[in-house]
Design a protein around this nucleic acid. Structure first.
Length: 202
DNA sequence: CGTCATATCT
DNA sequence: GAGATATGAC
């Protein structure tokens, strides 16, 4: 399995969790460094763990802590939506790119150039909402892109997706006309209003 | 800039 | 080969 498919699968599995997690991410965060327990410190001291018959927490090396920190930071710098979009950002930050002394881990920070946009359900949902909100005449690539407000998403990306979306609507409508099974793949569920009306067929 | 046909991936 | 996305011509 290549990276492309891995990304795709990972994101699809974590969509909802990511979104929820991000929403209340910033609430109740400690402000002073003093409030934070160092990552390297065990939450339950070994003797206490033994006393209460709790399996001991494995201790963490400095390298592990450092790696976890970098991973967290790289996730934090992604905008909310992108955190759940399976697409790597075009990072330029060399401190993020370079891994230390040959550590090669699967969890290493993603540093490659942005690959093709994958319109996962969450991203598509946003697209559909924006298209519906704009209405027919105004639902053009640039406007959609602006309202979606997803970092890294280009006008071309949107235009391409819009083309496919319009094709889908047209197909859906023609099937509708012949009274065939109208069930739609969830990914392409049309907006309540908007594009369909634009084609004078709904 | 928007739309479309088609190229380029998987 | 089909489907998703990118690209280029207009």
């Amino acid at each position: 399995m290549n990276e492309y498919e891995e990304d795709r699968i990972n994101s699809n599995n974590n969509l909802e969790e990511d979104q929820d997690r991000i929403l209340d991410w910033e609430e109740g965060l400690p402000t002073a460094a003093d409030d934070l327990i160092p990552l390297s410190q065990l939450l339950i001291p070994p003797d206490l763990a033994t006393a209460f018959n709790v399996s001991a927490q494995s201790s963490r090396t400095a390298i592990e802590v450092n790696r976890a920190s970098r991973l967290t930071l790289s996730n934090l710098r992604k905008p909310n939506l992108l955190a759940s979009i399976n697409r790597s950002l075009p990072y330029d930050d060399p401190t993020v790119i370079d891994s230390e002394e040959g550590e090669v881990e699967e969890e290493a920070v993603i540093v490659k150039r942005a690959r093709r946009v994958v319109w996962n359900p969450l991203l598509h949902k946003r697209f559909v909402e924006v298209v519906a909100h704009l209405g027919v005449e105004k639902a053009v690539p640039k406007a959609i892109m602006c309202l979606m407000n997803v970092e890294g998403l280009t006008r071309e990306n949107v235009a391409s997706h819009l083309q496919k979306y319009r094709l889908f609507l047209k197909k859906r409508i023609s099937i509708d006309h012949h009274d065939f099974d109208q069930r739609m793949p969830p990914l392409m569920a049309p907006p309540v209003f908007g594009m369909a009306a634009a084609y004078g067929l709904q």
